[in-house]
């Protein structure tokens, strides 16, 4: 482990925080395209922070991961989602239960909650400066769930799920060093396939029901 400048650290913290903020902002708008936009920004932040971590820890595999995030998530998945949105013609998610601004405020509250939670956790000494990563990770997870809970459209649920996944990744990145590369890649693959399959199903929902509003999918019940 070699020394690194405090500036770099604060920059890294800012980027990490930015990803959480992108997620919060994502909750605030009902436009699907903006949502996807925010999602891709959020993953971009993630990719950057992976890069920085790689620089700090001098681990080659983090660079690979960062590249993978950039190409798979930031570009690949976002494009895919844009394409779906366009094909289906979904423009706006009206939201469910909570008005969008209030949901956004709630996700700020969740950020605070995440801070409290992550303070409870022990930290490894050399990762102490990255404690904010835990906060941001948990916040992303919670925000992702909140997003899923407050949105109507199937595509928003995929977005929420992806945000959660990002949170977990961020958490893993900053709270535990040295996840094996093949595991990381495997996870990537799984997420990628999951999104692809969801995309297919969304098409099918659109095809069968002529909408993608999942609140109307309640015919299977007791």
């Amino acid at each position: 482990m070699i020394s690194f400048s405090p500036f770099m650290f604060s920059f890294l913290q800012a980027i990490i925080l930015a990803s959480a903020i992108m997620a919060i902002l994502m909750v605030g708008t009902g436009q699907i395209r903006s949502n996807i936009m925010f999602y891709s920004l959020q993953t971009l932040c993630l990719a950057l922070s992976a890069c920085f971590c790689a620089a700090i820890e001098h681990e080659l595999k983090h660079y690979i991961v960062a590249l993978a995030i950039f190409f798979v998530k930031t570009i690949g998945l976002s494009t895919f989602l844009f394409w779906i949105t366009k094909r289906i013609g979904a423009a706006k998610d009206l939201g469910l239960y909570l008005p969008l601004p209030i949901a956004m405020h709630l996700s700020v509250v969740l950020l605070v909650f995440a801070q409290i939670l992550s303070n409870q956790l022990p930290h490894l000494n050399h990762l102490q400066p990255l404690a904010i990563g835990g906060t941001a990770g948990i916040s992303l997870i919670l925000t992702g769930i909140l997003f899923m809970l407050t949105r109507r459209l199937a595509i928003s649920q995929v977005l929420g799920f992806l945000t959660m996944e990002n949170g977990i990744f961020l958490f893993a990145l900053t709270q535990s060093s040295g996840m094996p590369l093949f595991i990381e890649m495997g996870i990537f693959l799984d997420v990628f396939v999951a999104v692809m399959i969801s995309g297919l199903i969304i098409f099918k929902i659109k095809h069968s029901f002529e909408h993608i509003d999942v609140t109307l999918l309640t015919s299977l019940r007791d």
Binding site: S198, I201, K204, S219
Partner: peptide, 12 residues
């Protein structure tokens, strides 16, 4: 329709 719905719920 039902199968699609069930799959969606299962997946998510």
């Amino acid at each position: 329709k039902h199968a699609v719905e069930a799959t969606w719920k299962y997946l998510i």
